[in-house]
């Protein structure tokens, strides 16, 4: 392994073509495009159905489930975009997702660094403990978790959503980041030590920048997961002012009835940021996962 070099970053550079940045990619064969077209149609159709459904009214949806909007009713979307509660919930979702992502990275990267670069008794136990967290989804833990949050007076605040999300996000983060940090060649660390750089300083000066692809990946995955999170906020947040977007959709579901068109329009609008965010960083995610799936 002595020849190992900075695996992930190098590979990324070597294969920058992977990102399609070269203008002269050739055209593929028609068969390939055909397959791609079919796949894309299948993946996008249900989402398109939701988006288009927001432009119909309830009666249209009932009478002709597969129809196009006729007439188009953009007012449902307009109404939501003009409502202050939508933007308030948008802000709450953003705060929750950003803080969750930042904290997961801060805590996860430090812990991963320890797991990757230190040798100590209990290291295996620590790794096993975090990995066991994968076996216990938040769905299953919600009742005891809520009682705990209440005892800590964290209900009805975004902190009560953020902290458990960070905790439940740690296992994935650590599994992705540990191999990444292990790929940093020892020589660099040794050189740093010769320069009188302590391991802590090495961590901040070298590890942080070098692990950026992995950090970005886990950050984005956490952001998206938090943005979509439903069950935890549902239990923790009661006050409408603290609602995140997935809870906001409630206002269109009455005691017995439901304004399906508004639900569809609202969900369409609320998924846009996650989609944009993911799209913008999609290539980075591939690069960031590279370390995690390496043999």
């Amino acid at each position: 392994m002595t020849t190992a070099s900075l695996e992930a970053p190098r590979a990324k550079k070597n294969r920058s073509a992977q990102g399609g940045s070269k203008p002269k990619d050739p055209w593929g064969s028609p068969a390939v495009y055909f397959i791609a077209l079919v796949v894309v149609a299948l993946t996008v159709a249900p989402v398109a159905y939701i988006v288009l459904g927001g432009f119909r009214d309830n009666s249209q949806i009932t009478v002709d489930p597969a129809g196009f909007p006729s007439p188009w009713r953009p007012e449902t979307y307009a109404h939501i975009l003009q409502s202050s509660s939508f933007w308030h919930q948008f802000l709450n979702s953003t705060i929750a997702a950003l803080f969750t992502a930042v904290l997961v990275i801060a805590l996860g990267l430090s812990a991963s660094y320890v797991l990757a670069r230190y040798k100590f008794r209990g290291r295996g136990l620590m790794f096993g403990l975090f990995a066991a967290g994968l076996m216990f989804p938040i769905t299953v833990a919600i009742t005891p978790l809520f009682i705990l949050l209440n005892n800590l007076h964290l209900t009805n605040s975004l902190i009560g959503v953020i902290l458990p999300q960070v905790a439940f996000g740690l296992p994935t983060t650590i599994i992705i980041l540990v191999p990444f940090l292990q790929a940093i060649p020892e020589e660099i660390e040794e050189a740093a030590a010769v320069d009188g750089c302590s391991r802590l300083r090495f961590y901040f000066k070298m590890v942080l920048p070098l692990s950026l692809p992995g950090v970005l990946t886990t950050g984005i995955l956490t952001f998206v997961a938090s943005w979509n999170s439903y069950l935890l906020p549902l239990f923790v947040l009661s006050d409408t002012n603290s609602f995140t977007l997935p809870l906001g959709v409630q206002q269109f579901r009455g005691v017995h009835g439901s304004d399906t068109a508004a639900v569809l329009a609202f969900t369409s609008l609320s998924m846009i940021p996650a989609l944009l965010f993911f799209t913008a960083f999609e290539r980075r995610i591939v690069g960031g996962l590279q370390g995690a799936v390496k043999g």
Partner: peptide, 13 residues
């Protein structure tokens, strides 16, 4: 209830 295609919606139409 709860969706336009639910029975209440079917009755309404």
């Amino acid at each position: 209830q709860g969706a336009a295609s639910a029975t209440a919606g079917l009755l309404a139409n």
